[in-house]
Design a binder for these strands. Structure first.
Lengths: 333, 333
DNA sequence: CTGTTAGCGCATTCAG
DNA sequence: CTGAATGCGCTAACAG
């Protein structure tokens, strides 16, 4: 059934040269006479030879793959990012391994495993709660943080505080003064950063973020719906809500509409992320766009550069966000 | 900076045994005396030794990773499936590599690369348009189709025709007779299968699928919105629409609502997939649920079994779908 | 139970 | 420009 695949020896024999020459003809074509190169290539065609990556990598001391550590693979937020990563990694000769950090009972152990096993040439880490390898005092391949960040590690992030400020200012400019905020999980760097940006923009207008109007969520749809229930229970309801993720905005609007509240008639809603469905909701969701594909692409580039330079350090990059005006925000009253 | 990691030699020296014993103590603890095992383990602790997977895999002739070939990684439909895959692969000792088949200009070449390079122990293929490796006459690791299928290859699929039939019957039972269908891309196995299931259920009721009422989409949101434009242009409008994916249903409903058409007041809409957002739309989308996480998990199990048995063949599995009644379908008129 | 001996398949010295 | 020799780091036979 499974005919054994041709080895470099077979090619060498068929083309009448040594295995060393075959290897060179394939890896460094210019260092070989044209005639022999052709002979080798012909033999490669004939045998269908493809170098065994395991052996090649062992010899070259590189694995040809990079690992993305994402918290909750099931979150569709990452799909575009992974796609961006893949689209630059693939042409650069790297495969993309992905692992779910949430699924893992013991992230420390697993991380240690990845670090030392020589399984990957680099890592893109989307989860700031993972232990910092530098602090673990161990050898490890280049590592880049993305979306979330931590310490001085190189990273690709979005301007979260500014995005939140833009969202709040948009609400303010539309005439809202009574503004609520649905946050991500407390302690998360994105949550805190957006919270701070929102509070700052509010302060500029002489307003503050009421505790009663700050609902803690977890970035997921269901938590947005829960926040809606809390909003509904309020005697004194804010006229606008800034949700720290589109998913939460979606859950929030959905639950409100189920309860017979009009959006944006009775409450304006603004999200964060600009997930694909945002523009197709009713009303279409006004939000802060986070260019997820770009994040993936930039992360891949930066990481590949670090690998090329054999450096654990590298530049960080901050990507701008953008207000996308749609229909879920209007003037109050 | 990057201290060189300890090798098996270091552990052997430190614990006063041979490298072979170290290897055994780690891979087959029971074949080693307890006292030596302890000594080895202690040395491992001390040195922080982690076996180099490249060398180990070269020797064992396995790679420890399996590859998922998905058409369009950016499609969030796959995120749950990947999560399911990962959750069983990880404990089974496999890493998950993912590659986007759409992004690749020459899938044949890349596929050949994966097959022969010994990079992976198995593949899960979500794209039926890829060439069949068996027909390519080459050695390759076990392969399992998922979601889509092709020829006699082992697969994990959902009962697409039945799901479509259930959707149509639900519309019929609600009193609809004038039913439209928004399909996936023509030629796609899922598209054809759902089309056939829908036509069958319609035929049972003495009805047929009108060409004028069959809109071709591509499973994406935008194509659903385009279908809505065509529905709006109809002089004689169907009272219900079966969309072959939730994303299309979402785009369809959104565009209709923008145009001032009430759902389900003027048209009932039913989708397929049950993506997470479906229940949070307004109206909440009635749909056919496809258990995506289960699909991933089952695929992983079947593939691991094939690998364990060193077999290119294996059982196929069909997973049941389920009608999720929500609010986007009601009686006409 | 343990050490010795051979490679896994390839890329890279080092001579010629 | 090419070939012969030498491991990459580890595990599987095979003896002892």
């Amino acid at each position: 059934m499974r005919q054994k695949t041709a080895g470099i020896q077979d090619v060498a024999r068929l083309s009448g040269v040594s295995t060393a020459t075959v290897s060179r003809a394939l890896s460094h074509p210019e260092r070989v006479a044209e005639s022999t190169r052709e002979a080798v290539l012909r033999a490669v065609q004939e045998t269908g030879y493809v170098a065994n990556s395991l052996a090649r990598n062992l010899r070259r001391r590189r694995t040809g793959s990079i690992l993305a550590l994402v918290p909750n693979l099931a979150n569709p937020f990452f799909s575009q990012i992974l796609s961006g990563l893949s689209s630059v990694l693939s042409p650069a000769g790297y495969g993309l391994l992905i692992a779910d950090t949430l699924a893992d009972p013991d992230p420390r152990a697993r991380l240690a495993h990845y670090f030392d096993s020589g399984l990957v040439d680099g890592l893109v880490v989307f989860d700031a709660t993972l232990p910092d390898p530098a602090l673990m005092q161990r050898a490890h391949p280049p590592l880049l943080m993305a979306c979330e960040w931590r310490g001085e590690l190189p990273s690709v992030t979005v301007d979260n505080a500014e995005g939140a400020a833009i969202a709040i200012r948009h609400l303010l400019e539309s005439g809202h003064r009574r503004i609520a905020h649905v946050t991500g999980p407390r302690g998360n760097v994105l949550t805190e950063s957006r919270l701070q940006g929102a509070a700052g923009a509010l302060a500029e207008a002489g307003l503050a973020l009421h505790d009663d109007w700050t609902f803690t969520g977890d970035f997921g749809i269901a938590s947005g719906a829960q926040a809606a229930a809390r909003w509904l229970a309020l005697a004194d309801r804010p006229t606008a809500v800034f949700c720290a993720s589109d998913e939460m905005a979606c859950g929030f609007m959905g639950a409100l509409q189920q309860a017979g509240i009009a959006v944006p008639g009775e409450v304006s809603v603004i999200g964060f992320d600009d997930i694909e469905v945002a523009g197709h909701l009713t009303p279409a969701l006004t939000t802060i766009r986070q260019p997820r594909r770009d994040i993936g692409e930039r992360a891949a580039h930066l990481l590949v550069d670090m690998i090329d330079q054999r450096s654990l350090m590298g530049p960080s990059e901050r990507i701008a966000v953008e207000l996308i005006r749609r229909q879920s925000v209007k003037s109050p009253g």
